[in-house]
Design a protein around this nucleic acid. Structure first.
Lengths: 146, 146
DNA sequence: TCTACAGTCTACAGTGACTGTAGAGGCAAG
DNA sequence: CTTGCCTCTACAGTCACTGTAGACTGTAGA
């Protein structure tokens, strides 16, 4: 029950010290108590909170979504449909991204397979990059991060 | 054969004006001629170059890789194994990312399926986010952008 | 010729989610 | 007391752009 420093919290939750301070700066983690010398002091609830954030990030939720989830969590008698909507949204994002990446994989594989070595000037990879005709990019959907 | 302004080049290659200037600033596009009043003037080769860059980006190649490819392109008598290595590397990235995303999709799907509505306090999605025990994130592999 | 209005210019700030660095001070073990 | 790690703040850097402000240019119609 004794408070821990940021380093201990970092180990307990598996989140880097700098990242914890960053989460504080953007308001995902509240401002902790301080020791006389100004060091941050956390209780066990901070481990819980930080793990929640980390797991959300590991699942690709943007910090804004996590912020919303935390707000919802603070009002546990509410209906959970908002939570479901956020998760569903994230699932759609992941699926969209998967689709893009599968197309990329196909195209890259194709490019590499059709290259038979030799000089750069006759390299199929290069010509594929030059010739924009039969490719994914046609969709004009930029490949974005998750 | 008459030179075009940046706006025309933008339309011809499907790349935003600001992005073209950005590519110039990082040296992916060379510095073009200018009109008397200082406007950029491009020839048809610029469309070619820009399309090459765009297609590479669409395939997820980082700009540094594209820079290398352009250098290799300028020396067409070289062996193309370096080109192949860059493409192969990118394919590995894509595959790694696909693996992560498939795991994410599974976990999100599972979370959402197990939620049966009701209050936030008993929401399975929330408890899944709180309980870190049986998840992907165990791998401690951060989900990174492509 | 005048007037809109679209296009272009530079320079810089902002995005997301952190990471890295510098320079100073804190704390516990040997 | 010294060694060595920990923590502090504040700010710059990452990637690949996007957005904004404020000024200038070029062109088409009245």
């Amino acid at each position: 029950m004794k408070p821990m420093t940021i380093g201990r919290l970092s180990k307990a939750a598996g989140v880097k010290v700098t990242t914890i301070r960053y989460y504080e700066s953007i308001g995902l983690m509240g401002e902790p108590d301080r020791s006389d010398s100004g060091q941050r002091l956390y209780g066990d609830d901070a481990v819980q909170r930080l793990s929640f954030i980390r797991h959300g990030r590991d699942l690709g939720f943007p910090t804004e979504a996590i912020r919303e989830l935390i707000t919802l969590q603070s009002d546990p008698s509410e209906d959970c449909s908002a939570v479901e909507a956020i998760a569903e949204d994230q699932l759609q994002n992941v699926r969209k991204r998967l689709k893009q990446l599968r197309a990329l994989e196909r195209e890259l594989k194709h490019m590499i397979m059709s290259c038979e070595g030799g000089k750069v000037c006759e390299c199929r990879i290069m010509s594929a990059l030059n010739d924009h005709s039969d490719c994914i990019a046609q969709t004009h959907e930029r490949v974005t991060a998750l």
